[in-house]
Design a protein around this nucleic acid. Sequence first.
DNA 1: CATGAATGAGAATTCATTCAT
DNA 2: TATGAATGAATTCTCATTCAT
Lengths: 223, 223, 223, 223
Amino acid sequence: MSPSVPDRPRGPGLRRDAARNRTKILRAAGRSFGEDGLEVGVESIAHRAGVGVGTLYRRFPTKESLIEAVVHELLHDVGDAARAALTVEPAADGLAAFLRSAAALQVEHRGCLGRLWDDRAHDPIRQEIEASVRELLGRAHRGGTVRRDIAYEDVVVMLWSIRGVVESTAWVAPDAWRRHVDLLLGAVRPDAPAPGYPPMDASQLRAALDARRRPPGRGPAGA
Amino acid sequence: MSPSVPDRPRGPGLRRDAARNRTKILRAAGRSFGEDGLEVGVESIAHRAGVGVGTLYRRFPTKESLIEAVVHELLHDVGDAARAALTVEPAADGLAAFLRSAAALQVEHRGCLGRLWDDRAHDPIRQEIEASVRELLGRAHRGGTVRRDIAYEDVVVMLWSIRGVVESTAWVAPDAWRRHVDLLLGAVRPDAPAPGYPPMDASQLRAALDARRRPPGRGPAGA
Amino acid sequence: MSPSVPDRPRGPGLRRDAARNRTKILRAAGRSFGEDGLEVGVESIAHRAGVGVGTLYRRFPTKESLIEAVVHELLHDVGDAARAALTVEPAADGLAAFLRSAAALQVEHRGCLGRLWDDRAHDPIRQEIEASVRELLGRAHRGGTVRRDIAYEDVVVMLWSIRGVVESTAWVAPDAWRRHVDLLLGAVRPDAPAPGYPPMDASQLRAALDARRRPPGRGPAGA
Amino acid sequence: MSPSVPDRPRGPGLRRDAARNRTKILRAAGRSFGEDGLEVGVESIAHRAGVGVGTLYRRFPTKESLIEAVVHELLHDVGDAARAALTVEPAADGLAAFLRSAAALQVEHRGCLGRLWDDRAHDPIRQEIEASVRELLGRAHRGGTVRRDIAYEDVVVMLWSIRGVVESTAWVAPDAWRRHVDLLLGAVRPDAPAPGYPPMDASQLRAALDARRRPPGRGPAGA
DNA sequence: CATGAATGAGAATTCATTCAT
DNA sequence: TATGAATGAATTCTCATTCAT
């Protein structure tokens, strides 16, 4: 959709070239994480960005913070996609449009999806996305393209399911997710049978978004 | 479902205590990978198994081989699940049963799903699983629970999609996948709309299973 | 002769401090290998050089490469010695001078002689040394200090024989080789009896220099 | 010459099969050290001997002790060679015969020569060898094949020098030492010029035999 | 006793992060 | 300020030695 890491203003206190560096790094990191996964070394990212590691660390105090920034950018793109979907006509098809846009973004960033849909950093943009998605879902409900028992949480689960497909197929069949999305959309139509289990509740969803990986107190190494 | 690493005979050439340790290690590794991901250190696995690293390395000459062994076990469990599903009555529901069993196994091994559905080691058991799944799908076709245009490849994609859900929810809502599976099953019923895109073809599937991550010719990081 | 690891320029692409460290490491490695043998741990070398292991590995990507670099330095010193010997007067004594210089260098590096006289890395400097030594030998032939049947290969064997003496005596009698060299020089004089066996031929010499230890096709230990 | 590890009686308190095992191990170790060097793992030696490591460790409490035993055997062979040389006619040629026999033994055991000519274990057989060699040297002196200024210590140095040649050539030219020995023998003839340096003195020789490698107090690891 | 499994200290190497230039 | 060199803890793996069967 939108070219990741655009010219979104980065706060006022950043000199022009500094901001340019920040952008270069972010873009390089986005590509590196997307292609090679989060395990890529910072050195390789810095190299790709055409800067030294020192510069990278000046902008992003830890690798973690860089990851978060990349995810933040990606979330912005998702937010843009959601906003764009709100303009789709007929309105009842906005949700489908959003799912497809989001899937395309996942393909582009296939290496860091593990972090896309969790919320360690509690990014405020998620609330905006949530609001948009709820609105899209409401329109679909009202327009009769999606059953009433399909909740907001189900949409999030759909995104996760798309992630599973994308992570396994994006390298060799970058469009394989399309059929899967069609399947999902068919599954939530009013004339499809309702599942026997209820959606996740809001607190479960929050928990899932919050601290995926590692059940409360465990873990050998750092994080 | 089945307790991973059961008393599957380990070939005759292993002393009793050695076999016991092998099992302990495999079980510990299964749990560690499941909970902490493949990045856990071998030391921590050995500790969990109550053995020294040396012992671990005596049984599994590299960490990679340990991972493969764990995946192999898991595949066996999946194979068992597929075989069990072939006994389900009515036969048309066997596929659904299999998907649910496989999902439960994925929850148990949530940390190493990335390796479960690829095929670096070209384990022959996969062929057996494939045969079973094709049979299950055939029964479902004939029994009218699944549309004829749903192919074997689609079932694999479903497993990947379940993986996506499991990886995001297993920690906090270990049953969240159930609703998703219901959704998927609803989506493939004869009365549900067919997707606008065709299933993956066999060669794409093979490629996806084979060398996930990293588009054909690329070095890991350095270059 | 020359203090190993001198101010030989290390190529321009190295910052001042980096070059200094490289030198420190090389010098420390030279001493460590010389005193303790090639088995010394890299950590101990790094410590001796006053740097961290990481620094060592930044300059030399493997321990092997460090060994090669040390040997390379040593070869340079040998090359210098050969060149210096070419200026000795009378010219017929140049070969003797060279043998003595080379012996002194061997004493200094007694721990890594095993690698000095083999040629895994196919260092081009060896050709230069060979040329010089052939010239020195020719002068000795013409000057009547060495018999005509003494070939270049014999000089190499002499160096190996000196190595044997040095490795056994350097720790307690660092000058013991002098008498041995005198003996050898006496043995090759025109008035000394010719040996009953011919010198090695060139291909044997090359093989000996190339892959010492381990007769062509064998694995290290296991098989 | 003699097949290493013969049926030398091993003290009375060893049951027949135990003694047989000891011999098998010793022979395997001799071959392994000879071919692969002292770095071979004990496991590989045990395997070669057709016994378990446990058995090996029952006979030889440490790897070091095994090495010493192998060297001890080798010394016995050297002793045998010296004794045999005492029967050579004319007596003045005994020393040359001994040097050649000893060289052949070194070729056979090229992997552990580093330990052959030192005397950590203070093996009494060395004294016997020394006595024989002194006698051989005396006969050579009297017979006029060796100059009077050539001392016992010089003969030891010759053995070391042969070692240097053997270690570098044995793999590819197992007879290359012959020419070198001829050279050495020529060098010590009465009509050859005397070296400008005196032989090692007895205490230096003892020191060299005693604790080669590692000047008094140093050394990161174990020994 | 023989066996080979278990042990764990130590070795080489990597990489996120800090710091001198 | 930008650079990339330095750092060292953590990781995988080996091997001499001990111990249960």
